[in-house]
Nucleic acid binder design. Structure first.
Lengths: 217, 217
DNA sequence: ATATTTTTTTAGACTAGTCTAAACTTTTAT
DNA sequence: ATAAAAGTTTAGACTAGTCTAAAAAAATAT
């Protein structure tokens, strides 16, 4: 059983390691958690005693199978709650993150099972991120950056790789939310801005924005 | 802003003082929170610095107006969540308490407003306890024990004064949950058992059960 | 009214989590 | 290859919350 703080460290390690594929450094973790390196070192020791990460001095941490399972369970809860907030309570998708950060720590397997069922066993959250199933399995939707696609491309938005509330609000306004059909009309050569079509409306987006949007490959 | 622990102390003080009407002693609080008197003394000092209780050594604590407002807000959250769990997620009413104990500490006024609206602004929770409104106002439903009513009585169930899971399950089976319409058909003289009608079905209940059920007066 | 019992508070210690400052490794630059 | 810089860990201290044991106050019994 992990404490709330331990859960947050584990989740950060999972994300920073790209799902457990690479080691995470002390300073990365400190920055990500808005804390100091010394605190991270202390916590790392605790987490490795609990066998959710393995740790070698000066070389960073790696998440264990056990740790990965626990991280996925937290992520599952986070994404189910976000889905609930947006679909049922009419939150906008830029408002849900902080609340889900709290709700993800509620301990009740029964609650999560029932919530999952209530929501109709969704496979992605409102941002398009996949929701791990009860066993931690993630269904991967193959995707590519919108900025990489060629004029004429038709598909739909898979996810938005940013949690900045300003960007989310902007995308919401132009209709650029996960699940939406999208067409790439043309690309402007001098600044790589894109002319796209959403909800039968043409709109121009900057290169920076096009690099945050993942679409079906 | 109160910590989770402080919130739990404050809630216990509110309940033990019957809504702020009487002082609460250190040992009562220690027993109710399954902790030691020494810990209670420490926490009492912190809470009185925060002006949610007033405290005089050796004389117990009294909740302040501020403290009462905060306690009511927590109770409101608890009861709204219980309502959600039972009405929407199909929890049975004997399973919800522990989960609601966790959910009541989520900090998000917007969440609670939206949840309240989603549930249709309920005035009582699944156990029949009143849900304080946004301003902490409680609508008191005048009620009486079912065992005191006369044959011919028509009204509805206000609350069930027991948290025994066996009784709750039994009442759930016969349709005797808070909010339900109920008629008193007849009373058996020799054992005070009652013939009642619930969901257009006649059923007989014992005296003991009839003393646990509160109905509209 | 005084002694005994009960209740409450204080004192001091412990764990979880955090911090600053100093020490120690590793990496990078010359 | 060695010095400087960057990154990491240790040492020691602090807050929140808890505990045990002892002291102090209040209530009760004789």
């Amino acid at each position: 059983m992990l404490s709330l703080t331990e859960e947050n460290y584990l989740k950060a390690i999972y994300h920073l390691s790209d799902g457990g594929t690479k080691a995470v450094l002390t300073n990365e973790l400190a920055e990500s958690l808005a804390t100091k390196a010394a605190s991270v070192t202390d916590m790392i020791k605790k987490l490795s005693v609990k066998n959710v990460i393995s740790y070698e001095k000066y070389y960073g941490v790696k998440i264990t199978r056990q740790g990965k399972a626990q991280a996925l369970s937290i992520i599952r809860k986070h994404r189910l709650w976000e889905t609930f907030l947006v679909q049922q309570l009419n939150f906008s998708w830029d408002e849900v993150h902080e609340v889900a950060e709290q709700l993800e720590h509620i301990q009740s397997p029964l609650l999560i099972e029932k919530l999952d069922e209530f929501l109709g066993f969704p496979s992605v959250d409102p941002h398009g991120e996949p929701i791990p199933d009860k066993n931690g399995k993630i269904k991967i939707q193959s995707s590519a950056m919108l900025s990489e696609m060629l004029p004429g491309y038709k598909g739909s938005i898979v996810a938005v790789k940013d949690s900045d509330s300003g960007l989310l609000k902007y995308l919401d306004k132009i209709g650029g939310t996960p699940g939406k059909k999208i067409k790439l009309i043309s690309k402007e050569e001098y600044d790589d801005s894109l002319e796209i079509e959403l909800d039968n409306m043409k709109v121009s987006i900057s290169k920076i924005v096009s690099q945050k949007i993942l679409v079906t490959a």
